[in-house]
Simulated assay, not measured.
Amino acid sequence: MDHTNYTWTPTFILTGFTTTRTLQPLAFLGTLCIYVLTLAGNLFIIILVKTDSALSTPMYFFISVLSFLELWYVSTTVPTLLHTLLHGRSPIPSAACFLQLYVFHSLGMTECYLLGVMALDPYLAICRPLHYHALMSRQVQLCLAGSTWVAGFSAALVPASLTASLPFCWKDVAHYFCDLAPLMKLACVDTSWHAQIHGAVIGVATGCNFVLIVGLYGGILTAVLKLPSAASRAKAFSTCSSHMTVVALFYASAFTVYVSSPGSRPAGTDKLIALVYALLTPFLNPIIYTLRNKEVKEAVKRVSERMRAIWRKP
């Protein structure tokens, strides 16, 4: 096919989800509520960690960084989801589409790296307790957190730039945001080479971090099983349970979409799976990290008492 007659596509059309008139307002309101609660929950964690000195530990510092990331991550795609639910097929300028693609994947890969760093913290606390404070100083925490952002935004340049350089023959993006697979389906050329590059970059980012997390938790498990009392073992496992739940949710959905073969899934499945890691996981993270967390509950009480004392002052 001769592609010389094709020009740069000024806009794409996000098709979103196909809903009936009855379900459309319910889907919109439900998504809006989850979005608002997600923003509120993650902001709550950031403010709580910042205002309560008892939470000035490496673990809660990284949790607050994750919450900050989730604020941007969920805000990258949910506004376009809400727009498509309210108005149906929605145009999006090509520049905005590719920017959304880049930011979304940058934040996604940053989260992959950050989850790996968050597994390193309990590993050092349990396996290297005598050296923990030296190995996880404030400067080290800042360097580790900053490195995850640099690595994530650098790695995402490859798939985003390759996709943006493709010639496109069609405009309808079969998704509620601009993602790799639905955009490549609109290209006028064979994208198998691009897909291999995308799979390699994303696979290395997610796969290596997943292997790192599994290895670190293997070391944690070995160390915990050597603890003398059952109470000590239970406490150590409870420290890691929240992070392991978040890792399972994020990686299971991300691997399904970006590592497995797209042809093996029914049409439209990717949009539903994307809701898990793009909307549901950021919504659940504050709940997972605060539910049944005694330290957070005590911090909430302390902050509430301080606020009540301020309000009572004449």
Rank of each mutant, 00 (worst) to 15 (best):
L275T: 13
T77W: 02
T148M: 05
I34Y: 06
S137F: 01
H131K: 14
P282M: 02
L99V: 12
M244C: 09
L162Q: 11
R306N: 09
V36R: 05
T269K: 02
S161H: 06
L26K: 08
S75Q: 05
M109N: 04
G30E: 06
S137M: 01
L180R: 06
A309L: 10
K271C: 12
R302M: 06
C178F: 05
M244L: 15
F255C: 08
L55F: 05
K185S: 14
T76F: 01
L162S: 04
L183S: 06
I45N: 01
A145E: 01
T206Y: 12
W193S: 12
P314K: 13
D52M: 04
V65D: 02
L183M: 15
T290D: 00
S238C: 08
Q141G: 05
W149R: 02
V247P: 01
S242C: 04
G268C: 06
P167M: 09
K171I: 09
M184G: 05
F17V: 08
S53P: 00
E305V: 11
V173C: 02
V117H: 00
Y113H: 14
A231C: 08
I197G: 03
L227T: 02
T76D: 07
V211L: 15
I197W: 08
A223N: 04
L162G: 12
K271Q: 15
H131V: 08
I126Y: 00
S106I: 09
L272H: 11
V259Y: 07
L115C: 08
V246E: 00
N42H: 09
E298W: 03
L86F: 14
V259K: 04
F61T: 15
L26E: 02
R302V: 09
I126E: 01
E70C: 14
L135S: 07
R138V: 02
D52I: 03
L107N: 01
L43K: 03
L32E: 10
A125W: 01
A27N: 12
V117P: 00
A223Y: 05
Y251L: 12
I213G: 00
S161C: 12
L69W: 09
E298H: 08
H3T: 14
G41C: 06
R128Q: 11
C33I: 15
T245M: 07
P266K: 10
T22K: 13
K301T: 13
R306S: 14
C178A: 14
T77R: 06
A309F: 10
G108S: 11
